[in-house]
């Protein structure tokens, strides 16, 4: 089934590294509808061990903001899907908020995710807002109102990283958010297996997979393509387009 006709979106997260253009292409070939491209930050407070390690590795390899924007441009040359830079406010604070928006758009990015930038701050930076099971209804409404395209549901109270089960808090969060907003709801954090992806697709409009994709990506583009195809197939089987 082609991703263009799929009912549910599959978002794959990768950290910007020299191999990422080739990996992102493989993820899209496997069925990713959107690729999040992590700009590594030294103190990534939302990340669990896998993405922390990958971020440290990327920084040690010189993947600073400028190199990451070049990486996004290189990914853009290979794929047509939306590319969403995901990073932390410190990066934009140093680079310049407006300048980051301009340069990332010029590189081919769509929107952004700035994990620790509250919705009230820098509204000129169009971005996907995040809400969590601990977010109040009022907070979910404000974030939905200002989000850019879809609302990122953090499925659990914790950091990113593969878990054994999909968070039991997700269903309640989806239910609350549905009652408050009509924007598409994509869920992430702790989703790693095809079975997880399928069960999340039954609840939300999109599935975000990060840590496990970052782990598989170390094995190369073929392994990543196969892994993403497995997620895609499970999602499409659970919720046919």
């Amino acid at each position: 089934m082609s991703s263009a006709t799929a009912a549910k979106s599959l978002v794959i997260y990768l950290v910007c590294e020299p191999e990422t253009p080739e990996l992102a292409e493989a993820a899209v070939e496997g069925g990713a509808d959107i690729v999040e491209l992590g700009i590594p930050f030294s103190d990534p407070l939302a990340e669990g061990p896998t993405i922390r390690l990958a971020s440290e590795r990327a920084l040690a390899r010189g993947m600073r903001t400028k190199q990451c924007l070049e990486c996004i441009a290189a990914v853009r040359e290979r794929v047509d899907v939306p590319l969403v830079p995901m990073t932390y406010a410190a990066i934009l604070e140093a680079y310049g908020y407006e300048r980051f928006v301009e340069d990332s758009r010029a590189a081919g990015a769509t929107s952004a995710i700035v994990v620790d930038l509250p919705v009230e701050e820098h509204r000129d930076v169009a971005r996907i807002q995040l809400v969590a099971p601990t977010s109040t209804d009022e907070r979910i409404s404000v974030c939905a109102e200002h989000t850019d395209g879809w609302l990122y549901l953090v499925s659990l109270t914790g950091t990113t990283g593969a878990r054994d089960e999909v968070s039991p808090a997700l269903a309640g969060l989806v239910e609350r958010a549905r009652a408050l907003t009509g924007v598409p709801l994509y869920a992430g954090f702790g989703i790693s297996t095809p079975a997880h992806a399928a069960s999340v697709a039954e609840l939300a409009d999109g599935v975000v997979v990060g840590s496990r994709a970052v782990q598989v990506a170390v094995e190369g583009p073929d392994a990543l393509r196969e892994y993403v195809a497995g997620l895609r197939a499970a999602i499409d089987a659970a919720v046919p387009a």
Partner: peptide, 14 residues
């Protein structure tokens, strides 16, 4: 989570 005076480099890395 706070904007303050921080030991950081030109790229904002701590």
């Amino acid at each position: 989570g706070a904007r303050s005076s921080v030991l950081a480099d030109d790229d904002g890395q701590i």
